[in-house]
Design a protein around this nucleic acid. Structure first.
Lengths: 182, 182
DNA sequence: ATAATAAGTTAGTTAAGCTAACTAAATGAT
DNA sequence: ATCATTTAGTTAGCTTAACTAACTTATTAT
């Protein structure tokens, strides 16, 4: 194969790449769904819990934004995580409409252990690939991650780094309103 | 190959790659979900329709295997596609338990036009990437596609390539007594 | 004081997955 | 030939996760 010609073909068809990525993502998740279920955490809950664990205390709205879903979806998701004893809420002292979500120790443990267990099947497949293939994947991952962030989302989240609790509320509020750069 | 150390890092952690792939896939699909809805075809239906359109006539079992879902799920999915006038079924003449699924012209058209429209947002993002990034993605896609096929599934489905209709059925089933219609 | 905005919740719908239990047809053994 | 088994698909009922619309409560602005 002439590599020049092939490269040209590849880069000339973003739609084709997008298409195949789409399919691949669907099938990838289908494949992992089974493992997810075994550990009692659906992909949605897993993803949300992960934001809570690594992103420090977050509000419901933060979570909804991070997960790119609507408020009711987050309400329900958090309720389930709460029921499983993986997160808990705490009302903000300054703005009593706001609920801060934190992970319990159980939630942190379950995320770390469970997540590893869940992607283990995938990881094994990755490990079975030829080195060049693994490299191809590893190089594509950061690109993929950039792709999955909608460009239309400014995301002003200072809170996401471990916020000490109540003090930050006023600070956070400030940039809530103005929405600096879009 | 430039940095040996970097390669080692990249290939040494399949679990890390798997993890990030998992997240990326979730967010990718979330992002596309909105676009999907607009065109009237959910990701699942889109994926199934795509198999029917490009994989020639398939049985329900074929579809279930290709989509990695259980029979009831496929039954429902096909019923909806049928209701939308995108596919139709036809009973096999030799084995009357078997249903062959084909795309209608409308289904073919909708897939071609609709699919492009649906992944258009993603395609636009891909097009916006730097050329090296596009190449990284393009090279990773085939690897991804291999990853999404469970290794534990031998799946010797001869039917999946465009089967002319009833002729092949007997080939597959050959040597079994021809049960005349009752 | 009152209107407007913001954060979450509730209610109700739709879609997509599953298992269990079923029907109908085909195959195999006696 | 009959009866048991296997296979293809369906039905019923459950769960999860998404959505919109309409609501409550709290905050902010006029």
């Amino acid at each position: 194969m002439g590599s020049k010609a092939r490269q040209a073909t590849l880069t000339a068809r973003p739609a084709l790449v997008a298409n195949r990525l789409h399919s691949a993502a669907i099938h990838l998740l289908r494949r992992l769904r089974t493992e997810d279920a075994a550990a009692g955490l659906s992909p949605s809950r897993l993803s949300a819990l992960s934001v809570v664990v690594f992103g420090g205390p977050v509000t419901l709205g933060d979570l909804a934004a991070a997960e790119q879903v609507r408020p009711p979806t987050i309400t329900r998701l958090v309720r389930e995580l709460e029921r499983q004893g993986l997160v808990f809420r705490e009302a903000d002292r300054e703005d009593r409409r706001v609920q801060w979500i934190r992970a319990t120790p159980k939630g942190q443990r379950l995320l770390r252990e469970g997540r590893a267990r869940r992607v283990q099947v995938l990881a094994a497949s990755v490990a079975d690939l030829a080195p060049e293939e693994q490299k191809a994947l590893a190089r594509a991952v950061p690109v993929l991650e950039r792709l999955t962030v909608p460009p239309s989302r400014p995301r002003p989240r200072e809170r996401l780094g471990g916020v000490p609790r109540t003090a930050t509320r006023s600070t956070a509020k400030q940039n809530r309103g103005p929405r600096p750069q879009s």
